[in-house]
Amino acid sequence: MKKKSSFSTQGQRADIGDLIIYRMLPNRYADAVGPFVFLDHVAPAVQTKVNKEGTGAHPHRGIATLTYVLHGEDEHFDSAGNYAKVHSGGVQWMNAGNGIIHDETLNHDSVTDSRLVHAFQFWVNLPSTVKAEKPAYLAIEGNEVPYKDLPDRRGWIKVIAGSFEELSSAVPTYSEQFLYHIHLEPGVSFVIDFAGKLEVAAFLPVLPASINDEHFNAGDFIEFGREDGSLELRNDNTEGCDFLVFGGEPYTEPIVAEGPFVMNAELEIAHAYRDFYNGKYGKIDYEKQRAGK
């Protein structure tokens, strides 16, 4: 049985500097898909000048940030002393836990010297018990992301979070959740099954495509019904097409979000701001972290 779409929508512009960004989640129809409460799409663009400012140092609490870099080089700093660069195909994951300050800078890939920049950032809502833990961090280069070719040269699948068949991502998860990047060659289709307990969404970052015999436009964010069923992804274009498919178990605790914090009660939001303004999240030492000391 094929899942039916519940809605489709386009993102709202939320640019940072020269980066063209579309905010896909939350949107006017949904605040979350499984544990995912936020999705920014950094639209593909040829970079003409280096981005020196990044996103700027800012706090988080109660979530994990997950940045997936299709093209480019993402440099990460945080107040727990973590520093890394990942390149095209790589993933940065940071559990903000009970409070952290971080900064990211997205530029062209210095390894391949390609000027194309294209990325996604998700926020994953954490269970209340994990929100109280110390922050954690993980950097995964593109060649370490689980990957497999689909049968009959139809394309490939990358598992950014969760698991698919024998593939399992190193990104920690605290509930059943998944994030897949699926690439299909022209004129082919691929079917993937989901249990009814899972919330499921798809996003078409570059090209239009068909999902369960329904046509969607490039830039569409689509959520599907909660019944057991499958998604049949079909590429009707004359070139390869990419799909992001993600979701997971519904988040069953209360959700209170304000600014960079996602907690379970209004009082916890107040405490998050209080601790930030009292300096409890620490500071980023850019020079020391770049030097690897």
Rank of each mutant, 00 (worst) to 15 (best):
M1V: 14
M1G: 08
S6L: 15
S8R: 11
G11Q: 07
D18C: 09
I20K: 11
I21M: 00
Y22R: 15
R23W: 09
L25R: 01
L25S: 04
Y29F: 15
A30D: 08
D31C: 13
D31M: 14
A32Y: 13
V33D: 07
P35I: 05
V37H: 07
V37D: 09
F38A: 03
L39A: 06
A43K: 13
P44F: 06
V46K: 15
T48I: 15
V50N: 11
N51R: 04
N51V: 04
E53R: 10
G56N: 05
A57Q: 10
R61S: 08
G62E: 00
V69P: 01
G72Q: 01
E73I: 03
D74C: 11
D74I: 07
H76Y: 07
G81C: 01
A84H: 08
K85A: 12
V86A: 06
V86H: 01
H87C: 07
S88F: 07
G90F: 02
Q92W: 05
G97S: 01
D103R: 08
E104S: 05
D109H: 04
V111K: 14
V111Y: 10
R115N: 12
L116K: 13
V117R: 04
A119C: 03
A119D: 00
F120M: 07
P127W: 06
E133V: 03
K134H: 11
A136S: 08
Y137W: 13
I140C: 05
E141D: 12
G142F: 11
Y147I: 07
Y147Q: 11
R154W: 08
G155N: 07
K158R: 15
E165F: 11
S169N: 02
S175V: 10
E176T: 12
Q177H: 11
F178L: 01
Y180P: 02
P186T: 04
P186G: 01
F190D: 04
K197G: 06
E199I: 06
A201D: 04
P205I: 09
L207S: 14
S210F: 14
N212I: 02
D213H: 14
E214Y: 06
N217I: 08
F224E: 00
L231A: 02
L233F: 04
N235F: 03
T238Q: 14
C241T: 15
C241Q: 12
F243W: 11
L244P: 02
V245P: 02
F246A: 05
G248M: 02
E253T: 04
I255A: 05
I255P: 01
E258M: 14
F261H: 02
V262L: 10
N264S: 10
A265S: 15
E268Y: 03
I269L: 05
A272G: 02
R274Q: 14
R274G: 15
G279C: 04
G279K: 04
K283D: 11
I284P: 00
I284V: 01
Y286H: 12
Y286C: 06
E287Y: 12
K293S: 14
